[in-house]
Write a protein that binds this DNA or RNA. Structure first.
Length: 256
DNA sequence: TACACGTGGTG
DNA sequence: TCACCAAGTGT
């Protein structure tokens, strides 16, 4: 559950299934992953995106092996302290893996709360204090009910109360929705800033990392730098990749 | 709070 | 084509 939640961060579930299955076959327990080199995790991550998640997941396995005797902890406080585990993932593991009581706040749930409770079309770009208070107020008291609420609210947002064309006709809570009652106003929706991509450091890093990931024998530094049209930017990005620990350098050879 | 951080599907 | 975006985290 922890692995699947980390892989699902900002990533469609449909793309997670394959890598997750392979990952769990190869490393069924935290100890199995902890014994590997971090580069193996980065390689197995493939093209899931945000590859630092692979590094953090490896570090998470090491931490679980060292601090929790190889057993995934079951409380929010313990989980939130692990690498790559933030508010959402800690709550998700508590709720989905252990059936505990935690407010699982992802973008889907925040959108549902924004519409049903606040009456606006969309939630903010990040979790706010108001979101947490709303979610805390909605969370059922018992563990069982809370866990069911968590998965229900997330599915509702993912399948029915979707961002673009919500299926209000088949929504089970349509009768309670302030946004629907108000005639589904679109104003007030925050203008999302598009994610720049072409020519960015992000794209440059992706190109260089992909090159290294696909070269079994490693890649010559010069080859990597010439894989990007702007030399200066390539040097900078290779530098950050090395700093991040995503790529390692041995002489003039680059490896994961 | 704002920003950096990948990738591939979709309208 | 191309902007938009999908179950966030760390700084």
């Amino acid at each position: 559950m922890l692995v699947s939640e980390v892989m699902s961060q900002q990533t469609p579930l449909s793309r997670v299934v394959g890598p997750w299955t392979d990952w769990m076959d190869r490393w069924p327990t935290p100890d199995d992953l902890a014994e590997e080199e971090p580069g193996a995790a980065v390689a197995a991550w493939g093209r899931l995106g945000y590859p630092r998640r692979a590094l953090r997941l490896h570090a998470c396995a090491v931490a679980i092996a060292q601090d929790f005797d190889g057993v995934v902890p079951s409380t929010y406080e313990e989980l939130i302290g692990l690498p790559g585990i933030g508010d959402y993932t800690a709550a998700a593991v508590v709720s989905f893996a252990f059936g505990g009581r935690a407010a699982v706040l992802d973008t889907n749930v925040r959108r549902v709360l924004a519409r049903v409770e606040t009456g606006v079309a969309n939630c903010g770009s990040s979790t706010s204090r108001a979101d947490r208070e709303l979610a805390a107020g909605w969370l059922p008291e018992s563990e069982a009910a809370a866990a069911r609420w968590a998965v229900s609210s997330m599915e509702l947002g993912a399948l029915v109360c979707v961002a673009r064309a919500p299926l209000c006709e088949s929504c089970p809570v349509a009768g309670h929705c302030r946004w629907l009652a108000a005639g589904k106003p679109t104003d007030g929706a925050p203008v999302r800033r598009g994610q720049a991509w072409k020519g960015t450091d992000r794209q440059c890093r992706g190109v260089i990392l992909d090159l290294v990931r696909n070269a079994v024998a490693g890649v010559d530094v010069e080859v990597a730098l010439t894989s990007w049209p702007k030399r200066h930017q390539a040097e900078k990005c290779l530098g950050t990749l090395l700093d991040d620990g995503l790529i390692h350098r041995e002489g003039s050879v680059l490896r994961l």
